[in-house]
Design a protein around this nucleic acid. Structure first.
Lengths: 207, 207
DNA sequence: CGCTAATCTAGAACAAGTTTCAGACTTGAT
DNA sequence: ATCAAGTCTGAAACTTGTTCTAGATTAGCG
């Protein structure tokens, strides 16, 4: 369950302490640069310099800029999942709780719009070579949503609804980031798609 | 209602015949290269050479690779809208018709997966400078969906559902293109999101 | 026709992602 | 402590998107 982006071999050597430190420095520099100017501001040479690592080494840890930014996203997502766990959503119906959770995540992203830009653009621009890492992000997102629904054992239908919610979440974020949708519009889209949960929820109102 | 990507001034001079011809050649070359190897295969120098135009001229017509590919998508979308009009979907309920239409479009994309890759990646990677063109694509897509619903005067709720359907459509395409979702999975996602139409349709079953 | 402004061309130049390589440094095993 | 294998560094090179320039061509106009 861990597809680490480690030097060379996928999950081989467990990374020495100095290597772990390098990896952190790199991710930190990446997030920092991204926070400043978004996707374009994360320049590999600058990341290398900021994190005091040679360019070649940076590429050994993260084989492309997109890999790096997706790993940055994994990092941030973990952080966010932790934060969300502490204050679970309070809505009564599952749909409300999911919408509440996503809007909370959205507000967090609004605080660092450039960072959000870098991460989301990388995620959707990623080609097949990044699939494992993108998939991991997707699983993490699914976990967050299911968590907020309070489900341990979702039905296939509910999983479908969650998939669609994730699609909407990503795409709505993009339209917001590129200035084609307002914050209010994103909220409406999220609330709209969350209705699907009611449609697939056996205890909705009937029965 | 036409945000042409024309040389220099937005909608100024109506383009001479030779200019129109150049523009066509460029779009044709773009689509051709994209069909071969997707986003990466569309290299500006090659597009320029294939369409017998200097690099500088190419950039005068389309100010970036993303602009070019989004324009290519507009072109293809128009074509598809025409095709879809000829054989309207046959389902009884609006949700069925929309799903049918999108699956038809999806099958068309499957025939040219590399072209689809180039266009969709460009669309989601586009930054603010391409917003007008991306918006135009979005309007065109909305029109196709509303067409298939047979709606001339949608309610705000229905428009919200259509927005979410578009989000899902784009994002599902991306997961398919990057090999993270199967064709079957895309179909399920589309069918799932189309249920939203029933939820917002006043004549669904009740009343 | 002849002029002027706009457009087009060829090609160099620049920017940033990625690759490569020789040599210095670490690590782990003996 | 020593050696082999693997890792890191610094720097150059390569690729492709983008910009710039000087001169040739074209379009519109009097």
């Amino acid at each position: 369950m861990s597809a680490e982006a480690s030097p060379q071999r996928p999950a081989h050597s467990p990374l020495t302490e100095r290597q772990e430190a390098r990896r952190r420095r790199i991710l930190h520099a990446s997030a920092q640069l991204a926070s400043r100017g978004g996707f374009d501001a994360v320049q590999m040479r600058e990341v290398a310099e900021s994190s005091q690592v040679a360019l070649g080494t940076l590429y050994r840890y993260f084989p492309s800029k997109v890999h790096l930014l997706v790993a940055t996203m994994q990092d941030q997502l973990e952080h966010m999942h932790g934060t969300l766990r502490k204050k679970p959503p309070t809505g009564e119906r599952a749909a409300e709780r999911v919408a509440e959770t996503l809007m909370r995540a959205f507000r967090a992203l609004q605080r660092e719009p450039h960072l959000a830009d870098a991460m989301v653009r990388a995620l959707t621009f990623a080609d097949r070579s990044v699939s494992p890492e993108v998939d991991q992000v997707s699983r993490q997102t699914t976990a967050i949503i299911l968590d907020s629904m309070g489900l341990t054992d979702p039905t296939p239908e509910q999983l479908s609804a969650v998939r669609v919610i994730e699609h909407t979440w990503h795409s709505a974020l993009i339209t917001w980031l590129s200035g084609r949708a307002s914050i209010a519009q994103v909220r409406i889209d999220i609330e709209t798609v969350c209705r699907l949960i009611d449609v697939t929820d056996p205890h909705a109102s009937d029965d």
